[in-house]
């Protein structure tokens, strides 16, 4: 689940990494449709997901109000 960066040139002509599209490709099909958690392939993916998506409990930030 690595983030997708594209190489671009900034106004000064320097190369920079710009975050590319982050939507999931394709349309869900087939039997396991909806089984989203299977997209997390290994422990690193899972822990990254928990710390970002489930940040309410497992992220570094405190509560907002």
């Amino acid at each position: 689940m690595s983030d997708n960066f594209e190489k671009k040139e900034n106004y000064a002509g320097e190369h920079v990494d710009v975050l590319g599209a982050t939507y999931e490709e394709g349309k869900p099909t087939g039997k396991g449709i909806g089984r989203w958690a299977h997209k997390l392939e290994d422990k690193d993916d899972i822990l990254y997901y928990l710390r970002t998506a489930e940040r309410y409990w497992y992220g570094q930030e405190g509560e907002k109000s």
Binding site: M1, D3, T22, Y23, E24, A37, L40, Y49, E54
Partner: peptide
């Protein structure tokens, strides 16, 4: 949470 934002932006 997932349905509201997808894998990369799951969120309430």
């Amino acid at each position: 949470n997932y349905l509201l934002g997808g894998l990369f932006r799951a969120s309430y």
